[in-house]
């Protein structure tokens, strides 16, 4: 039954994709009317005016361009012309660095806060104020203090991915079942060993869920941050291609951002499954 459901769902997905591509294709077909103009004037005009081509690229244009990118993902023709692979690698490296730093801070800190009702209450107002700040609002302050645009972008990733992880770790640690703690207590297990053998495994699913939310937010934010700081990265690529008026490349970039985001989420989802225990 499940396999047939999966098969049917797959078929519907393919049908929806085909319908979407078909409508896209039909909507971006060449328009009939072509104004007659002198060849001199035509050189100044775009293909829309001279050949009646749609201003919006169709699926075939995007496909062809994508194939071109996929053939040469890592070329480097100078600052404004790098392969998509290089741009994505820059973005992933920034997200990875900022995210890893956030993990290193948020999980130990979350553990402390979760285990100490005093710290939990004392730090709560700070967390409540800092959490809703848009990560990009930190950008000017980061640029001013760090004075390096690339590190500033990493800082922005750090600050945006820390909150879901911190809050989930605190929640996970604070809501470990009392009976499991009591088991450790009756066995005279010390605080450190208790933290690693009871609290960590019990809170791991909640912590991983926070990490999964964080990686999603980090990937959302990196595009915007790179548009601001410029230089490299997929976000910069999008903005650069917009300035080049290459809508085809913008669409390709959007597609790739989506796919990379999905992959990052899937990786974390797999980790979450690994630490989840059935009760």
């Amino acid at each position: 039954m499940t396999s047939s459901l999966r098969l049917r769902a797959g078929l519907v997905s393919i049908a929806l994709l085909a319908a979407f591509l078909g409508i896209w294709y039909l909507a971006t077909r060449s328009t009939a009317s072509v104004a007659t103009m002198s060849p001199e004037y035509a050189k100044l005009m775009g293909l829309t005016a001279t050949q009646g081509k749609s201003a919006m690229p169709g699926p075939l244009d995007v496909g062809a361009k994508l194939w071109e990118h996929l053939k040469r993902p890592f070329y480097d023709n100078g600052p404004n012309d790098k392969g998509l692979g290089i741009q994505l690698a820059y973005s992933i490296a920034r997200v990875g660095t900022g995210y890893l730093m956030a993990v290193l801070v948020a999980i130990p800190l979350g553990f402390l806060i979760g285990m100490s009702p005093l710290l939990s209450r004392a730090l709560d107002p700070f967390i409540q104020v800092l959490k809703p700040i848009s990560p990009l609002a930190w950008m000017p302050l980061a640029l001013y203090t760090i004075k390096d645009s690339s590190i500033s972008a990493i800082f922005v990733i750090f600050i945006c991915s820390i909150w879901p992880m911190l809050l989930n770790t605190v929640f996970g640690v604070a809501s470990v079942r009392k009976e499991w703690i009591n088991v450790a207590r009756t066995l005279e297990v010390g605080t450190i060993r208790r933290a690693f053998t009871v609290i960590l495994p019990a809170a791991a699913p909640t912590i991983l869920t926070g990490m999964r939310i964080s990686i999603g937010i980090a990937w959302l934010v990196i595009v915007a941050a790179e548009m601001l700081v410029g230089g490299t990265g997929i976000g910069y690529f999008v903005w650069n291609e917009w300035n080049n008026l290459s809508i085809t490349n913008v669409i390709i970039a959007i597609l790739l951002i989506g796919i990379v985001g999905m992959l990052l989420d899937q990786i974390l989802a797999r980790f979450t499954r690994m630490v989840t225990f059935p009760e």
Binding site: E179, N182, R185, T186, P201, V275
Partner: peptide
């Protein structure tokens, strides 16, 4: 004073570590 390995507890809810 406090818990001890000399006094073992069998919990009503068995309290096994599910992982």
């Amino acid at each position: 004073s406090g818990t001890s390995l000399d006094r073992a507890v069998i919990f009503q809810s068995h309290a096994l570590l599910p992982w």
